[in-house]
Design a protein around this nucleic acid. Structure first.
Lengths: 342, 342
DNA sequence: CTGAAAGCGCTTACAG
DNA sequence: CTGAAAGCGCTTACAG
């Protein structure tokens, strides 16, 4: 049988309370006593039953998720995933509060972080914006001892505890390889549609893409990126204009949101007899339809549900001072083409 | 606060024991009493705390995993994943026993199933072989009330409770799309290397691949499949011979194991100046190296760890008579190319 | 057919 | 600095 706290207490000749103190690194135990208990734990090969511990604690973790008020499909899915995590909260002892901020606005995000910190939650998750006010706000939260996790888009050099999202540099490289190989020997130019270069995920996708294209497909020239603000209407207008201005565009990498607008533009282009290999991001109703009717050739996807669940797990671990199992928290990039859709 | 068994008991005016009987569908409760309890559960919106229930049960699940004695990298990984699940067993109250059987031998698998059944485990998982003796053995297990899960390779019409593995038909279609698009406009023939057509997963990959190739890439003719028995030495010999006999082979889909042999053959072909687009299955040390040096163009992968964990979850649920959440148990196909390797 | 009581492996006031 | 006792939300013999 697996040893329990009772066995430890017996072996060490102390009470359950003392065993608990040692196990949880609580103060007020003589060094000698602590040593006895640790010895017993070692010898019996004790492993704590986390489920039982949680039951006894009856603790509820209050987490705050700060999300951009962005009306694209992916953000909607992300929000839904957070809400769902909130609903499961009753059973998993987490209480999740969602705070909205304007999209791509570092100042607003920084303010929201400060405000969230005042309530001293057990942890905060946010879709980060790469800006100094945000970096400072994270610093302040860390000083207060509040765990901070970035979600979907990271913020380097900020002291955040963890990033729950995909490797966007790798995503960009992958997009380049698929685009280049799908185009084959044809020569021409590649348009790039980004959401905003103020977020790390878009920056990283762009740099991975550009590097790989330059290295492996030098016959395909990259045009400078169009900034669609993850907005369908803007995206459509930009792509319409780009295609009209340059008949040599034979490929598009759309690394942000606004798929609806992009698809509308592609439809018009197809009607005009143009053939454009296109790779987009995030599987939604729209991008799925585009894969099926051939307007999109591949979609790189991050699973919002995975990311949110990972963020919650990590925040819990941080709140409990437990280690995070990095391998388990790696978020993978899905590659969807028309015939492996889930 | 979330309601507990105590609240239900109070509201229904019965004891805890009776609440438990109703909740777990145990016999010996008057219909009227049962109704009262169910009413209370409804009204309070009660959701059972599974962790607490497991703690109280203190039950250990004895599971048997039957694995082929096949020395390819994927099977080794699968075995390691099962062993790891066994080690976690102490904490997750599962005791996993591994039974070895010869590969591709339906009779042997059927015998192993019968023998495993005699010990009346809480559940059995196996890499299925598509044969009638196996089907019969599964039938016998189901008659004894033992949950059966197929792992990696399925067995239709057998009454198995669940299949923990990828959609291999979709995998084949995906391979076809990637191969066809990577090859581009070139004309030529495609070689297919299978492990054995006695297993459902290989059958399904082949049919998905053939269908999609015929539909979308009619200029690429498929040669009849080579059966490599998932053995590197055999695979190498077969591919060597095929490439020597047919200079028009410009693509290979290897849908089984034996990557080492295939890679050796590809190396020789490359040395002879041949350019062959190749898609394989399962990421390993060898296939990873082949992606990196360009001998492989894509690798479709199933995560053995995911599959095993899913199988264990499902067996537990079956043993407890709990429903399986299908969406959560869907095993996805990873697509790896040289620059999205984990 | 139903209930009182003990117990699963932990944690937490409270008392000393 | 340490311990006895109660409790987290369930389940399980056992008694009636």
């Amino acid at each position: 049988m697996r040893p329990t706290v009772h066995d430890i207490a017996l072996k060490a000749g102390v009470s359950l309370a003392t065993v608990d103190r040692v196990m949880n690194d609580r103060p007020g135990v003589r060094e000698k006593t602590r040593a006895k208990v640790e010895e017993a734990i070692q010898q019996l090969g004790y492993v704590r039953d986390v489920a039982a511990a949680n039951l006894a604690k009856g603790r509820t973790y209050a987490f705050t998720f700060i999300l951009p008020r962005n009306d694209n499909a992916f953000m909607a899915e992300l929000r839904a995933a957070v809400e769902q995590a909130g609903e499961r909260g009753r059973i998993e002892r987490t209480a999740i509060k969602i705070v909205d901020v304007p999209a791509f606005d570092g100042e607003a995000l920084a303010r929201a972080l400060h405000k969230a910190g005042e309530e001293c939650p057990a942890g905060i998750a946010m879709v980060a914006i790469d800006s100094d006010p945000v970096r400072k706000a994270v610093g302040a939260l860390k000083k207060k001892g509040i765990p901070v996790v970035t979600l979907v888009s990271d913020l380097e050099d900020s002291g955040r505890d963890h990033y729950a999202g995909v490797d966007n540099q790798a995503a960009g490289r992958t997009a380049a390889t698929l685009l280049g190989r799908f185009i084959g020997a044809r020569k021409g130019r590649i348009a790039i549609l980004v959401g905003s270069l103020s977020v790390r995920d878009h920056q990283n996708r762009l740099s991975g893409f550009s590097e790989e294209m330059a290295a492996d497909f030098p016959h395909l020239a990259l045009k400078s990126p169009l900034e669609g603000r993850d907005d369908s209407a803007i995206a459509e207008r930009l792509v319409d204009a780009a295609l009209a201005a340059d008949p040599d565009i034979i490929g598009i990498y759309s690394l942000g949101a606004g798929n609806r607008g992009l698809i509308a533009a592609l439809e018009k282009a197809r009607a005009n007899g143009r053939e454009i290999v296109t790779i987009g991001h995030e599987l939604s109703e729209h991008s799925r339809a585009a894969l099926e009717n051939g307007l999109f050739d591949a979609v790189l996807n991050q699973d919002a549900g995975h990311e949110v669940r990972s963020a919650v797990r990590v925040l819990k671990a941080e709140a409990d001072g437990l280690p995070v199992i990095a391998a388990q928290e790696r978020i993978r990039i899905d590659i969807f083409i028309k015939n492996n859709l889930p």
